[in-house]
Design a protein around this nucleic acid. Structure first.
Lengths: 200, 200
DNA sequence: GCATTACGATACCGCCGAGTAGCGTAACGG
DNA sequence: CCGTTACGCTACTCGGCGGTATCGTAATGC
C-alpha cells in the first residue's frame, strides 16, 4: 500500500514548491481570485507555467494547495499563556501566522472573495483558515472562564465574541479604511470583547 | 447652462431603468463582480445589450449606478424610536432597505468582493452603502447616551460598536455559515453591543 | 550511453465576456 | 410624410486567461 516512486527519469524538483504556494497567496492578498493568473504566478516564481500544471492540475487546485499549506494558526495547539486574558488576546494579534497581521488580513480578504465562486474552496477556507482562527479566540476565552477571570454566567456569549476580532478587522479592511492600526485592535479587545465579558 | 434635451427622434424609455439596476444588484448578490455579465443582465431584463450600453458606457458604470440607486438606508434620516436602544437596534435589522436582511447581506458580500478591483467602486460603496449603514447604528447609540441609557463614560466605545452588526453579519455569511438567523442577530445586540455598553 | 521524465520557453487552442456595428423597426417632432 | 434617434436582434471584434502541445535540454537509473 505504498506509493511507489517513479524509478526512472529526472525527478521532480520540489525545492521551490513552498515559494510557489507563497507567491500564490501573495497574489491572492493583492487581487481577486479571478484576477490571479497562472501566467503571473509563473512570472513571479521564475517557473514555467507547464511546471505549475505538472503539480496542480487546475488553478483551483493550486489555490487550494496554497491555502492548505498556509496552515493553521500556530496557537491552535499552543495557546499564548501570559497570565491574563487581555495579554493573551493581544498576543494573538502579533502572531506571525500568514506573515503577520497585515498580510494575514489581506489574504483573508482575498480568500473571502474567492469563496463565492467555488464550494470546494469555500469549504477548505472555512475549515483550514477561518474556523481554526476563531477557535483560538474561543479557547482563550473559555480558559479565562475556567480561571474565573470571566463570570461563568457569560459562557454563552463566548462563541459570538470569539468572532469579533476576525470579523471586525476583515470588515475594516473590506470597507476600504486602509491598514488596521494597532489601536483599533486594542479597542476591539478592550471596548468590545472584554467590555462585553465585564473583565475588570 | 441648461442641459438641452434632444429635440428630435425617439426619446429614451426610462421606464425600466429601475428594473435594470435592481437586476444588476440581484446578480451581484449571487455572484462575484467578475462573474456578472451584461449578457445576463440583458437576458433577465429582456432588454438588448446595446440598450444597456446606450445608458451606461461600461460595466463598471452600470454597477456604480446600481449601487447609487440602491440608496442609503431609510433610517438615515428617520431613525427608529421605540423607547429603548434595544428595540431600536432590533428594528434596524428588519429594515426593508435593499430588500430586507437576506438580500441586503448578499449584496454586501457581492460588493465587498467587487471593491477589490476598482478604486472608484470602492469609494462609492463605502460612501453610499457601508458608511451610512454604520452611521445608523452610531446615531442610535449616541442618542441612547444622551438619554442616559448608556453611561457617558462609554461614549468612546460607540464608534467601534456601531460596526459590530454589519461586520459580524457579513463575516458570518462570508465564512459560509449560511443565512444569518434571527437569534444570531439578537445575540449580537444583546451579548455584544449592549453587553459592552452595560445596558441593563 | 540510453531510456525516461522533469524543466523552461514559446507558441498555440478554446472559450468567454466586454464592447461595437449594422439592420429593420418603432416612436417621437415638424 | 420625413428626418431623427431609440429599440431589439444578430453578428461580430478583441483581449485575456485557463489549459495544452512541442521542443531542446537537464537530471536521473541502469
Amino acid at each position: 500500500m505504498e506509493i511507489s516512486p517513479r524509478r526512472t527519469g529526472r525527478p521532480y524538483d520540489h525545492s521551490s514548491d513552498d515559494r510557489i504556494l507563497a507567491v500564490t497567496l501573495d497574489l491572492l492578498a493583492e487581487r481577486d481570485y479571478e484576477r490571479v493568473t497562472l501566467d503571473e504566478v509563473a512570472a513571479r516564481t521564475g517557473k514555467a507555467k507547464t511546471t505549475l500544471y505538472r503539480r496542480w492540475p487546475t488553478k483551483e487546485d493550486l489555490v487550494l494547495a496554497a491555502v492548505r499549506a498556509a496552515g493553521r494558526p500556530p496557537e491552535a495547539e499552543r495557546l499564548p499563556d501570559l497570565g491574563s486574558v487581555r495579554a493573551d488576546l493581544l498576543a494573538v494579534l502579533d502572531s506571525p501566522w500568514l506573515g503577520g497581521p497585515d498580510r494575514r488580513l489581506a489574504i483573508f480578504a482575498g480568500l473571502s472573495s474567492a469563496t463565492r465562486g467555488s464550494e470546494r474552496l469555500a469549504e477548505v477556507v472555512r475549515s483550514e483558515v477561518t474556523e481554526p482562527y476563531v477557535e483560538v479566540y474561543r479557547r482563550l476565552l473559555l480558559r479565562a472562564v475556567d480561571r474565573g477571570e470571566i463570570a461563568a454566567r457569560l459562557v454563552a456569549s463566548v462563541p459570538v465574541l470569539a468572532e469579533v476580532i476576525p470579523a471586525m478587522s476583515t470588515h475594516h479592511l473590506a470597507a476600504g479604511r486602509g491598514p488596521v492600526r494597532r489601536d483599533f485592535f486594542v479597542s476591539l479587545v478592550d471596548d468590545v470583547v472584554l467590555a462585553a465579558l465585564q473583565v475588570r
